[in-house]
């Protein structure tokens, strides 16, 4: 691997942006059922802005932490709404977690996933089971922790993370939203997967496909 960790992270964000672009309409449709129908658009704007911001960096000299904090500000300035602060805080925490590291090994990936999920949790003050993106990020981070602890090889690590994320997203259909605008829908949110959770699973799948 001659590629720098910063470059790997930048490619990871590019892949995330591609996946969101492909899923954009589907996400907006999901959001239309229980929110205001713009989740796909918001995520697309956010990740395009991240890609643009990263394009301005020198990835040969930048650290993984720099990439994360640039992604955080890029996303936030473009989006606002509720997704903006959540992902921006998650990426900013990941930047802190990756500070001083120049390798993206599995423990670093675990710390990155954990930092993102904790950032999202602290900013949104949600709990597991509240039918949010947290129902994907938390189990994914836990799966990463378990995978590192049991010395799983790279492919099995990412398989475990991806599966946890997918199961988490599917489970949101049986939950009732307590956060965000869907919370006002009360029981009408049942049977619908949370769009934020579905997009989170798509993002994790995108990361996993790179096997960093």
């Amino acid at each position: 691997m001659s590629e720098t960790a910063a470059r790997t992270l930048a490619r990871m964000f590019e892949r995330m942006s591609e996946v969101i672009e492909a899923e954009k309409d589907h996400l907006s449709e999901l959001d239309g059922a229980i929110g205001d129908g713009d989740h796909g658009i918001t995520m697309s704007i956010g990740f395009k802005a991240v890609t643009t911001a990263l394009a301005g960096m020198n990835l040969e000299t930048a650290s993984p932490s720099d990439v994360m904090s640039t992604a955080a500000s890029g996303f936030l300035d473009a989006v606002g709404a509720s997704t903006g602060p959540l992902y921006a805080t998650g990426f900013r925490r990941a930047a802190q977690a990756l500070a001083g590291r120049d390798m993206l090994d599995l423990p670093a990936c675990r710390d990155m996933l954990t930092a993102i999920s904790e950032g999202i949790r602290d900013r949104g003050k949600a709990q597991r089971g509240d039918k949010t993106m947290l129902d994907v990020w938390l189990p994914a981070a836990e799966a990463a922790t378990v995978a590192v602890a049991s010395n799983l090889p790279r492919p099995a690590f990412w398989k475990a993370v991806e599966t946890a994320a997918e199961n988490g997203a599917a489970a949101t259909a049986t939950m009732i939203a307590t956060k965000g605008r869907a919370a006002r829908l009360r029981e009408r949110s049942l049977g619908h997967a949370d769009p934020g959770a579905v997009s989170a699973a798509a993002l994790i799948k995108a990361i996993a496909s790179l096997q960093p």
Binding site: G80, S82, P85, L86, T89, G124, K179, G180, A183
Partner: peptide
């Protein structure tokens, strides 16, 4: 009092 506004204004 909306989740999105609260997060952005808090930041």
């Amino acid at each position: 009092n909306y989740a999105g506004d609260v997060m952005n204004f808090e930041m």
